[in-house]
């Protein structure tokens, strides 16, 4: 049974100039212990579809799907209360801006323990012990002392580690990482990716990696979905995607990588004939 299964997901936003379709019928599924990467440029709807799964979209958004099931439970049929029990415990999410995702008014220890209190119902001593254990797992030195730090006293990389600690606090079955390293330096990015991959293997989580960086995809994913303007362009395992991309859009993306430059000009999207629904705009 797939961990998460989505069929024909559509998301539209009400705006002052009418409805805007951000996601136009996406199918996807992820198995337990699998790393799925969703790649796309801005406007591809890659974040929106995952936020729809989490139920985190604003009220102006309309979400429809033929099926959206987590571990066999239909998410669309749940009440808000039931859904919140799953989200944050069985499905966790981390975001691009680690500094902005943490509340600057509270210590990181408080923020980790809050999750444990809400979802696990632990007492004070248990929470403290578990928080220290989590900080160790995400590779923060002197965990007991650092629990008393405020987010602004930590670097971006450390904040992202704390976010990961909060995300894995309840042993989720699925972790969604939305551009987790985009705001970080390359050397820190490497550390965070290594950490995510290690935790994924240790905990046997499913991991959905949303990114625009082909390098990150190549370094982490088992399977890849390429999205463009709210539609799925291609789905393949990582090796065949890079070895023999099927859709023109994927080809264009890969050849636009400066690593793959052959002449002194890079091929651009317009050099490729794209699918009718494709990137001519």
């Amino acid at each position: 049974m797939p961990l998460l299964q989505i069929k024909n997901l559509c998301v539209s936003f009400d705006t002052s100039v009418g409805a805007f379709m951000a996601v136009k019928g996406i199918d996807m599924s992820i198995e337990p212990r699998e790393v799925l990467a969703i790649v796309g440029e801005s406007g591809s709807g890659k974040s929106v579809s995952m936020l729809a799964v989490m139920g985190l979209l604003p009220k102006t958004a309309t979400v429809t799907a033929d099926r959206m099931a987590f571990n066999g439970v239909d998410l669309l049929g749940l009440t808000g209360e039931q859904r919140r029990k799953i989200i944050g415990r069985d499905i966790a999410m981390i975001f691009q801006e680690p500094m902005a995702s943490l509340n600057p008014c509270f210590t990181v220890g408080f923020q980790i323990e809050e999750v444990l209190r809400v979802h696990m119902g632990m007492d004070r001593a248990q929470r403290r012990a578990r928080a220290i254990e989590l900080m160790q797992q995400v590779g923060i030195a002197e965990p007991a002392e650092r629990l008393g730090s405020y987010p602004h006293q930590m670097s971006g990389g450390q904040c992202q580690r704390v976010m990961i600690a909060i995300a894995i606090a309840c042993n989720p079955k699925l972790l969604i990482a939305d551009e987790p390293t985009t705001a970080l330096d390359v050397t820190i990015q490497k550390q965070i990716l290594d950490l995510l991959m290690r935790l994924q293997a240790e905990h046997g989580m499913g991991l959905i990696m949303i990114t625009h960086n082909m390098g990150v995809v190549a370094e982490t994913a088992d399977r890849v979905i390429v999205q463009y303007k709210g539609r799925k362009m291609e789905e393949a395992d990582v090796l065949s995607l890079f070895e023999s991309p099927k859709s023109n859009y994927t080809k264009a993306l890969l050849s636009a990588l400066p690593d793959n430059a052959t002449g002194d000009r890079l091929p651009t999207i317009s050099d490729f004939a794209l699918d009718p629904e494709g990137a001519t705009a």
Binding site: V186, G215, E219, F242, E243, D259
Partner: peptide
Amino acid sequence: LFAATPRADVESI
């Protein structure tokens, strides 16, 4: 720095 840069070539994958 070089080692940390993600590599997107088929061999590395």
